[in-house]
Design a protein around this nucleic acid. Structure first.
Length: 549
RNA sequence: GCGCCAGUAGCUCAGUCGGAUAGAGCAAUUGCCUUCUAAGCAAUCGGUCGGGGGUUCGAUUCCUCCCUGGCGCGCCA
C-alpha cells in the first residue's frame, strides 16, 4: 500500500475511535516544505470545521493515537492551524522498491476505473487534407489519455470518427477535379476560393492524371466522383501513416456514412421527437436544447430537408452509448467549445448521466521558429503539417512538448527549442535519466555486479535515496489523478521531478563506488526501480525510454 | 452584446474540490568532468499570483465587479 493510503487508513481508525465520521475532503499529501515531514494530513482541520471543534486540540488527540498505531510511523507533530505532520520510518519508504519490483511494467497501474467501458475519441479530422500540428496535439493528448485511463483500470477503446459524409467531401472531389482540368490545360478559370487550396490537392491531381491520362475527358459528375473516391483514400492513408509515425493508436475507425446507411440518424431524430425534445418550426426540425441549459435551440433538419452535423453527432453519441460505454471522452479543438452545451443537452436528452460525458479541449498550437511565429496560412508552408514537424523534431520530442502543458492552454511550439537538447526541452532530461541508469547497469554487469543481487534495502538511508523512494511511492496516485482529471500532463511533471531527483542522486553518490557490495547491490535495486518507473511513465506518454543516448 | 478559456519570476509554464514562508526550467552570475554518460549537478539572483471589493481563523484558489488577450456565438461544415 502506498504511504498516503496507509496513513489515511490509520487516521480513519483514529477518528472512528474518537467517534467521528471520516471527512471525505481530508487528504494526506507531501507538504510544500520537507521540514514538515513526509506527509501532511489536514483531517483535523476539516473535521474541526464540520464539528465546530478546536482544530489543534483535535489534532493532538489524533496525533497521540497515530503515534501508537504503527511501527512505520516515526514521528507525528501538530503544526500550524492543526496539520498533522507525519514522518515515516525509512523502512516504509524502502518497501516502495519492493512494490515496483513486484509490479514491474504494471507499476503505477490501479483499478479506479473498475473495468468500466470507456471510450476516448480523438483526432477525428475530416479526411480532406493532411494532419497539421494542431491535430498532432489532440492526437498526443487523446492517445496518452487512453493509455493512462487503461492503466488506471478502465476498459478503454480509442476511436477516430470519420466525417465521410457531407458537403466537404464533395468539395474535396471538386477541388481535385478542377486541378485535373487545370493540369490538362482545359480550364483557365481562377481556382475557386471555397475549394481546398493546398498543394497536396495538386499533387493528387497529378498522380491521378499520370495513372489515367484520359481522366479530364470524363463528365464533370463522374470526374468529381472519381476524384473524391481517390482523393479521400490517398489522404486517409496519409493520415493513418502520420498517426502511426506519431505512435498514436486507434482501436476503432468509425464512419459517419455507416450511421447514415443504417438509418441511425433518422432513428435518433424520431427518438428525440417521441421524447418531446424535437419540434417543427419554419419548415425545419429543431431540438429544444435550451431545456438542458443551452443558449438557443438548434436545428436538426434544415428546411431544405438536409441534416445538420449536429443531427449526425447526436446519432453518433447515441451509438456510443448503445455500444455500452459508460464513460465517453471527446477530445476537441478549443475552437469547438461553443458546441459543448448542445452536446451535453443531447446526452441528457438521450437519458444518459451527465458525468458519463467529458470533453477535453485542446487549445490551438502556435508554431514558432526562433521565437518568430510561422504563419499557419492555407499555403502549404514548411512545417505546417504534422508529418513535417515529426520529421523535424522527432516523435518523442513533439509528443512530450504537447503533453507537458495543460491541454486547455495555448501552446507555443518553437521548432528551434524542441530540437534543442536542453531543459527548455525536457524530454531529453527525462530520457537521459533512464539512459544513465541503463549505463550504470551495463557497467555493473561488466564488473560482475549483478543488478539482481539481493541488496539490503535497509541500507538506503541517505536523503537523496529517501527522496527518490518517496517519489516512487507516489506514481500510482499520480496516474489516478491524471486519469480522473483527464490530464496527461500530470505524468510529464511527475517524470521531470523524478528525473531531477535521479540526476541529483547520481551526482551526489557513486552507485558502483559505494563502500561495500551490499550497499552497491541495494543502490542497484533502487536504480532499477527508478528506471522501471521512468519507463512506465514514459510509456503512458507514448515516448520511448532509450537505453543509451 | 453574450459565452468559454487564459492572465503566476525577465521568458516558458506548474500549482487552484481554501491551508503553513507561492514552485520548476530557461535566461543571468559563480563553481563542479584522471572516478558509473557534463543531454548532468550545486549555489546566487529573481514575485503587489492582472486590478478593486467580499466570504473565511486562513484566498493564487471561492463569490462579485472591472482590465487585457485568445476563441466561439448560422437552417456553415
Amino acid at each position: 500500500m502506498r504511504a498516503s493510503e496507509f496513513l489515511i487508513s490509520l487516521l480513519r481508525r483514529a477518528t472512528d475511535d474518537l467517534g467521528y465520521a471520516w471527512p471525505d475532503k481530508a487528504l494526506a499529501e507531501p507538504p510544500k516544505d520537507k521540514k514538515f515531514g513526509d506527509l501532511a494530513a489536514n483531517c483535523a482541520l476539516v473535521l474541526a470545521k464540520e464539528t465546530g471543534q478546536n482544530p489543534r486540540a483535535l489534532a493532538e488527540e489524533l496525533a497521540t493515537r497515530l503515534r501508537a498505531a504503527s511501527e512505520h510511523i516515526a514521528r507525528v507533530e501538530v503544526a500550524g492551524p492543526g496539520f498533522l505532520n507525519v514522518t515515516f520510518a525509512p523502512s516504509y519508504w524502502q518497501s516502495a522498491v519492493l512494490r515496483v519490483e513486484n509490479a514491474g511494467e504494471a507499476y503505477g497501474a490501479s483499478n479506479i476505473g473498475e473495468g468500466r467501458k470507456a471510450q476516448v475519441e480523438f483526432v477525428s479530422a475530416n479526411p480532406t487534407g493532411p494532419l497539421h500540428i494542431g491535430h498532432g496535439r489532440g492526437a498526443a493528448v487523446g492517445d496518452s489519455l487512453a493509455r493512462i485511463m487503461r492503466f488506471a483500470g478502465y476498459a478503454v477503446e480509442a476511436e477516430y470518427y470519420i466525417n465521410d459524409a457531407g458537403k466537404q467531401m464533395r468539395t474535396l472531389g471538386r477541388s481535385i477535379w478542377l486541378r485535373v482540368l487545370e493540369l490538362s490545360g482545359k480550364n483557365a478559370l481562377p481556382f475557386p476560393e471555397d475549394c481546398y487550396q493546398g498543394d497536396y490537392i495538386v499533387a493528387i491531381a497529378r498522380e491521378m492524371l499520370a495513372a489515367d491520362q484520359q481522366l479530364h475527358l470524363s463528365t464533370e459528375e463522374a470526374g468529381i466522383d472519381t476524384c473524391y473516391a481517390y482523393g479521400m483514400r490517398v489522404i486517409f492513408e496519409g493520415i493513418r501513416n502520420d498517426l502511426t509515425d506519431f505512435n498514436v493508436h486507434h482501436d476503432v475507425w468509425f464512419s459517419e456514412l455507416s450511421l447514415l446507411h443504417k438509418g441511425a440518424v433518422e432513428e435518433t431524430l424520431e427518438r428525440l421527437r417521441r421524447a418531446g425534445h424535437a419540434y417543427e418550426e419554419d419548415g425545419a426540425l429543431w431540438f429544444n436544447t435550451m431545456a438542458f441549459g443551452d443558449d438557443k435551440n438548434r436545428v436538426l433538419r434544415k428546411s431544405d430537408g438536409s441534416l445538420t452535423y449536429f443531427a449526425s453527432d447526436i446519432a453518433y453519441h447515441a451509438n456510443k452509448y448503445e455500444r455500452g460505454f459508460t464513460s465517453i471522452t471527446d477530445v476537441w479543438g478549443a475552437d469547438h467549445h461553443g458546441y459543448i452545451p448542445r452536446m451535453r443537452a443531447a446526452v441528457a436528452a438521450l437519458g444518459q448521466p451527465r458525468e458519463s460525458f467529458d470533453v477535453v479541449l485542446v487549445q490551438l498550437v502556435n508554431l514558432l521558429q526562433e521565437g518568430e511565429q510561422i504563419a499557419m496560412s492555407t499555403r502549404a508552408g514548411a512545417f505546417e503539417t504534422l508529418a513535417d514537424v515529426i520529421k523535424e523534431v522527432g516523435t518523442d520530442a513533439a509528443r512530450f512538448m504537447f503533453l507537458s502543458r495543460k491541454s486547455d492552454s495555448k501552446l507555443d511550439f518553437d521548432l528551434s527549442l524542441v530540437r534543442q537538447r536542453s531543459m527548455d526541452n525536457p524530454v531529453y532530461y527525462v530520457q537521459y535519466a533512464h539512459a544513465r541508469i541503463k549505463a550504470v547497469q551495463r557497467r555493473a554487469f561488466e564488473r560482475g555486479l549483478l543488478p539482481d543481487g539481493p541488496g539490503e534495502l535497509a541500507l538506503l538511508t541517505c536523503e537523496e535515496e529517501l527522496d527518490l523512494l518517496r517519489l516512487l511511492d507516489r506514481l500510482p496516485k499520480v496516474v489516478e489523478d491524471a486519469a480522473l482529471n483527464r490530464s496527461p500532463h500530470y505524468i510529464s511533471y511527475y517524470l521531470m521531478e523524478l528525473a531531477g531527483l535521479l540526476h541529483r542522486y547520481y551526482a551526489a553518490h557513486q552507485v558502483l563506488g559505494a563502500e561495500n557490495r551490499e550497499l552497491i547491490a541495494a543502490r542497484l535495486r533502487l536504480l532499477r526501480a527508478v528506471g522501471q518507473t521512468l519507463k512506465n511513465g514514459l510509456e503512458l506518454l507514448g515516448v520511448s525510454a532509450p537505453d543509451s543516448m
